[in-house]
């Protein structure tokens, strides 16, 4: 009986290992970068994510939208209500129609979505040489390799190796599939000045913005893991009890 039970789990295990049969072919291996949210005990480093938001706001948001997030979500990163209201009020948001039937611009509020840099994908393409800067709301879930890939991409710009000719307007990146990416290296040393004195190296900025993007994609991550521990602990105890009951019930049969 135990043997067959083990057999059942072997089948499950085989399924689990057989499935990530994913995109092979383009075999660029993505290096593992240590993040605060790695592993099953990981949590978001709030200071890093806050700095990451600053990088997004000052650099990425010039081209990339994050339309699934609202300014109020920044409260979860540890910003105060006043700070969030101040950030929101820096942008102009279209609202309306008013009583005259006209659309109008007003100061942003915490309940507003992040302002998109372009009104529609066509405008985004037109402004970017035909390349569409993807929305970054769930980018960390939408790429193979997740946060590691994003970090590798942001720090992976280099001169093309000999023999590689770049197409017009393209840039060489060691980790982008095909190595030719339309986005120019977005992070340059000391591009962003952090208020907490963190040096503005490319590595620091990349780590921080990736932490922010991971949080944006999975804001529930910490709650999810904490709940998971409690539930599995509960189930383990219940499993022990259920097994004891089962043994007792079957005691007079065996």
């Amino acid at each position: 009986m135990l043997r067959t039970a083990l057999g059942a789990f072997a089948v499950i295990g085989a399924l689990a290992t057989a499935t990530p049969a994913r995109a092979a072919g383009e075999a660029i291996s993505i290096p593992n970068h240590p993040f605060s949210f790695d592993g099953i005990f990981g949590t978001y480093d709030r200071a890093s994510a806050q700095r990451g938001f600053q990088v997004y706001k000052e650099v990425c948001s010039n081209c990339h939208a994050m339309h699934l997030l609202s300014y109020r979500n920044l409260r979860e990163l540890g910003l105060t209500e006043q700070q969030v209201a101040a950030i929101a009020s820096q942008v102009q948001v279209q609202d309306g129609p008013n009583d005259e039937g006209q659309m109008f611009e007003r100061d942003g509020r915490p309940s507003d979505r992040f302002r998109s840099p372009f009104p529609n994908p066509q405008a985004a393409r037109a402004a970017n040489n035909g390349a569409y800067p993807p929305d970054l709301s769930v980018i960390a879930k939408a790429r193979n390799g997740g946060a590691d890939y994003l970090y590798a991409l942001l720090t992976g710009y280099a001169d093309p190796p000999p023999g590689v000719t770049l197409m017009d307007g393209m840039n060489y990146n060691r980790y982008f599939p095909g190595h030719q990416i339309a986005m120019a290296a977005p992070l340059n040393p000391d591009q962003v000045e952090f208020a907490d004195g963190t040096p503005g190296t490319v590595e620091n900025m990349a780590r921080d913005v990736v932490t922010f993007l991971q949080w944006a994609a999975e804001p529930e991550l910490e709650q999810r893991r904490a709940m998971g521990f409690k539930i599995i602990l509960f189930l383990t105890i219940l499993g022990g009890l259920a097994y004891a009951v089962k043994r007792r019930v079957w005691a007079d049969v065996h």
Binding site: R225, M227, G228, I231, L235, L238
Partner: peptide, 14 residues
């Protein structure tokens, strides 16, 4: 069933 829930929870939460 409890064992099944543990596997299920592992997937959902982690």
């Amino acid at each position: 069933l409890v064992i099944y829930f543990i596997v299920f929870a592992g997937l959902v939460f982690f």
